[in-house]
Amino acid sequence: MQVHLVDGTYELFRQAYGRAARRPDAKQFAASIGVLRSTLALFSDGATHVGVASDHVIESFRNDLWPGYKTSAGMPPELLAQIPMVEEALDAMGVTTWAMVEHEADDALAAAAAIADADRRVERAVIVTADKDLGQCVRGTRVVQYDRRNRLFLDEEAIRAKFGIGPSSIPDYLGLVGDSADGFPGLPGWGAKSASAMLARWEHLESIPDSVRDWDVAGLRSPATLAVALRDNWSEALLFRRIATVETDVDVGSVDDWRWTGPTPEFARWAERLELPQLADEAATVASMLAGR
């Protein structure tokens, strides 16, 4: 069995800025419809166990950790309004939905990936998102990331090729370089190359020697400056790593809970509300197709 774990918030934004939603005659809820259709497409392609995680509230516990952490400010209100809508519509479509309040969608995806990884029946867990944070959840070829937009699978080898480090070092990497999309800056002077080179050598922040004399990494620019920045901003480095680390202590149920058995009767009303009644028929067709396999 394969498990598909979808970043619903990312998917909603991807759909909102996609070609269909930008058409002049686009429906008001085109982004939500896009999410529902792309989820149905997963089932059409053979997916059986799917969970969609969303940021029911954009703000999370991470906002208490760092004042600049991303918020809903500046996000289009019409798009924010569609988050609870798409959650409920997915739920009516019979899809397991994790609407996160205190935590983030990333945390639910990580928790679900770990549960899938621990389940021997699961051959592969696919985390459907392009977010680099989730790279830390990749395990060999068993837990992989899928970037839908670029149609790219990222297994552990691909993560190493992309970042120069293994999945376990991704939070440390983000702790050093920051993540502008999430709103934390990283350490002064540290960039992708230096962080990658150092963590390829030492894997985690704690392993990096205090003294720059022990930094036996070739090609590092201004190592003395980097060492001073690391020493003077050590608590920030740990803090940013903490922010970048996904929390797996989130209740997402078990793999069996994620099996799709088709839309609920309620979904027809949702299809009408979204001004696309044929969506209910599409879902029913995919469900019967899946049942016939």
Binding site: A99, A114, A118, V250, D251
Partner: peptide, 16 residues
Amino acid sequence: QSPPHREPTPAAGTFQ
């Protein structure tokens, strides 16, 4: 790592 075992009741206030 993630907890493979779950506690008897779920943690409060996260997943709805």
